[in-house]
């Protein structure tokens, strides 16, 4: 039997973090299935899936990482999961949409739009934000699979955008794929 684990790491960004973490996994005989990382404001966060032999526990993995001689603090969470993550997770749902919102920067913008999504049973697959001058921009990749009427969501979104003074655009992911990718 093997054990599937999900591992989350956060640290002040520096060179060698990925090498340190994957080195620890390797030394414990782990097989790395997937890794995703991102940096923001000088901090790095990553999430990893790995498979270990039965004898390796999440606690052993944390100990191994704690023993790394790191100049930055590595905040680590490791958990065993069942079942294993599907290998198809990279395929996007058919009703994947992109929402972009722009407005003057103020508190609660992400909270507001994410609550809107939650109220309408919309799952946020990915979210990126940028701030330029005073304009706060959010780009959200959304799964609208559980939405029955796109027209109703659009109309509710228009009302929301008007009330909040935001420019909100909701378009199908396909539109961005065809304008930015060459199919192969």
């Amino acid at each position: 039997m093997s054990r599937e684990m999900v591992i989350s790491v956060m640290s002040k960004d520096r060179t060698g973090i990925v090498a340190d973490i994957t080195g620890a996994i390797y030394e414990l005989g782990g097989d790395l299935a997937d890794l995703n990382q991102s940096t923001l404001g000088g901090y790095l966060t990553m999430i990893l899936f790995a498979t270990f032999d039965e004898g390796v526990s999440p606690a052993m993995l944390r100990e191994k990482i704690d023993a790394i001689d790191s100049p930055t603090t590595l905040d680590v969470v490791a958990r065993e999961i069942t079942p294993a993550p599907s290998s198809e997770h990279s395929e996007l749902p058919r009703k994947t949409y992109i929402m972009t919102t722009q407005g003057l920067n103020r508190k609660g913008l992400v909270y507001g739009i994410s609550s809107f999504c939650f109220r309408h049973d919309i799952n946020i697959l990915d979210l990126a934000t940028t701030i330029m001058a005073d304009t706060y921009t959010m780009v959200l990749q959304l799964d609208l699979s559980r939405v029955e009427s796109i027209a109703e969501v659009r109309s509710a979104l228009d009302t929301y955008a008007h009330e909040e003074g935001l420019q909100v655009v909701l378009q199908h992911h396909d539109l961005f794929k065809v304008t930015n990718e060459i199919p192969f």
């Binding site: 992109i98 990126a128 990749q141 655009v169 378009q171 961005f176 304008t179 930015n180």
Partner: peptide, 16 residues
């Protein structure tokens, strides 16, 4: 995921 700048460029094409 597509990059944010690609997305914003496409949105701009349609909106503005």
């Amino acid at each position: 995921m597509l990059r944010s700048d690609q997305i914003l460029a496409t949105v701009e094409m349609i909106q503005k």
